[in-house]
């Protein structure tokens, strides 16, 4: 059994829930409120909705992949490598974005979620 794979799946699912429920309330709802009162092209409004909800569904897809890889050792390495580098992209962005644009790491604390996912996915990759 791939324990690191299961841990990765749990972390992905928890982060996805936080994005959907807490992020939906604190970020997406105010965004919708403000944007509905502003004259803006449908492409702009729609694309922002797409990327927000796209990330929610992407977390579900990654959770499914992490669980599936636990039971398919023949292809597990490729899946965990993909999960590692995909989440690394967000971990690096979250770490640098708050510091470079707003002058403090705490401005974008999402790196606290993405680094553990990246590390556990990497451990799953090397133990697959």
């Amino acid at each position: 059994m791939q324990y690191w794979g299961l841990i990765t799946a749990c972390l992905l699912f928890i982060t996805g829930c936080i994005h959907y429920f807490a992020g939906g309330k604190l970020v997406w709802a105010p965004m919708l409120d403000q944007w509905q009162n502003v004259k803006q092209r449908k492409l702009v409004k729609g694309t922002l909705g797409l990327i927000w909800h796209g990330v929610s569904v992407w977390f579900v897809a990654m959770t499914i992949l992490a669980i599936y890889a636990c039971f398919t050792p023949q292809i597990a390495q490729g899946i965990y490598l993909t999960l590692t580098v995909m989440n690394l992209a967000f971990a690096v962005t979250a770490t640098l974005y708050g510091k470079l644009v707003y002058g403090r790491f705490g401005a974008s604390p999402q790196w606290l979620f993405f680094w553990p996912i990246t590390i556990s996915a990497f451990l799953a990759f090397i133990s697959a």
Binding site: L26, M31, L48, W52, A89, F90, T93, A94, S108
Partner: peptide, 17 residues
């Protein structure tokens, strides 16, 4: 700021992805 930072992270994170 919370909204702009979070949306910024999603936007730039997707570029990285």
């Amino acid at each position: 700021e919370t909204v702009r930072i979070s949306m910024g992270l999603v936007w730039h994170g997707l570029t990285g992805l």
